[in-house]
């Protein structure tokens, strides 16, 4: 799957490329407004990561260009501005998600995963992984064709892990994913542990192989 990274900070773009390439995405890079416009005119991407502040123009215009060409590329805005107005405007114009800098690469990867699965209108709204089947739109999970009832938090965690397979994910990143600023400010990520424990138990009870492993004491990894 192809991803276009529109980001003028080379170092950040490199990190994103490195991380996402490991997830079997093909990444292309555009470092200014002109390059970005050229690329979106020429190619089709599954997902575009868009920085709003670019040399040569406003990222919002790229979004408008995509909209006017009726392109179906998924767009995730990655912005340093973290301004609500931009978020609302971006989502109104047609962005699929908005991620404020700084972010965890695992968070970005999980969002890319979701956006691509949501965008596809064939039956690939269904994520199949061995005995697990997740319907992204209906938000249901089947293990060996038997439904497993997950809470909102457990479902979010499962999707996060599937979107970051074979990656070490820190408890911090998971806490931030689940509770955003709250977890951030409470400096207490124990609640993550209980959600993970419950998720693991429900999956294993339904006859699923235990893919979720603890690593380095405080990290987690979804091993396939």
């Amino acid at each position: 799957m192809k991803i276009l990274i529109i980001e003028d900070e080379t170092e950040l773009a490199n990190s994103i490329t490195t991380y996402l390439s490991g997830e079997n995405y093909v990444c292309e890079l555009a470092q200014d407004f002109g390059q970005a416009i050229d690329k979106i005119n020429l190619y089709q991407y599954d997902c575009i990561l868009l920085d709003l502040m670019l040399p040569g123009g406003d990222g919002m215009q790229i979004l408008e260009e995509l909209k006017s060409q009726n392109k179906q590329d998924g767009v995730i805005i990655i912005s340093a501005k973290n301004s609500l107005d931009d978020k609302i405007k971006g989502l109104q114009i047609g962005a699929d998600d908005y991620l404020a800098k700084p972010f965890h690469l695992s968070e970005l990867s999980a969002r890319v995963f979701s956006v691509i699965r949501r965008k596809q209108f064939t039956n690939s709204n269904i994520v199949q992984q061995n005995e697990i089947e997740i319907n992204i739109l209906a938000k249901t999970v089947l293990v060996n064709d038997i439904p497993v009832i997950l809470t909102k938090r457990e479902y979010a965690l499962l999707l996060y892990f599937i979107g970051n397979q074979n990656r070490v994910i820190s408890k911090n990143a998971l806490a931030e994913h689940l509770s955003g600023d709250i977890a951030d400010m409470l400096d207490n990520h124990d609640f993550v542990y209980s959600h993970i424990k419950n998720l693991k138990k429900k999956l294993v009870d339904a006859g699923c192989t235990n893919y979720l492993k603890s690593v380095y004491g405080t990290g987690y990894k979804w091993e396939i």
């Binding site: 900070e9 990143a173 380095y216």
Partner: peptide, 24 residues
């Protein structure tokens, strides 16, 4: 605050990549 967001994002991304290192 605006200007700091990008370098912070870079540091964050590098740390995230470091944790993926196999030989850690």
């Amino acid at each position: 605050s605006h200007e700091l967001q990008t370098p912070l994002a870079i540091v964050q991304s590098k740390l995230d990549l470091l944790t993926q290192h196999v030989a850690l």
